[in-house]
């Protein structure tokens, strides 16, 4: 069971926090500085909460902790004027998803909770409530 690993990512997981360079580059999630990068050049910035499905798959079965549902929809979401984000689609049936579907950010539990385990919360996307 991981604990600190999830805590470290709270900004990205809960708020889609990435970082923007003074030259305008926006990346997600915030990354460790590469050799030669200056911390002062990067500021935290939240990605837009809206996006569109850029690609998707409906996974049957799944890895441990993700194998208790008949399917899981995972998408590459093109966030508005920002980076792609890989995330589950929730509140969405397989026949509702298509490339271009407008989606919005929600925070949900990720993975099946285990007894005595930390509950992991993080970003997912759902079809936009108000089209």
């Amino acid at each position: 069971m991981n604990i600190a690993k999830h805590w470290r990512q709270n900004g990205a997981r809960y708020r889609l926090e990435g970082q923007r360079h003074r030259d305008g580059t926006l990346r997600f999630p915030a990354q460790s500085l590469q050799p030669g990068e200056a911390a002062a050049d990067w500021q935290p910035e939240q990605l837009a909460r809206q996006g569109e499905v850029f690609s998707f798959t409906v996974q049957r079965g799944g890895a441990a902790g993700f194998d208790d549902a008949p399917w899981t929809i995972i998408a590459l979401v093109q966030t508005a004027a920002g980076p792609l984000v890989t995330a589950q689609l929730t509140d969405c049936a397989p026949d509702e998803v298509a490339i271009g579907l407008p989606v919005e950010l929600v925070v949900r539990r990720i993975g099946t909770p285990v007894a005595d385990g930390l509950l992991v919360y993080g970003y997912k996307f759902r079809p936009r409530l108000l089209m």
Partner: peptide, 13 residues
């Protein structure tokens, strides 16, 4: 609630 929802996720929205 959906399978990935609980009081915390409901509250957040």
């Amino acid at each position: 609630p959906g399978p990935d929802e609980d009081t915390i996720t409901l509250a957040i929205e």
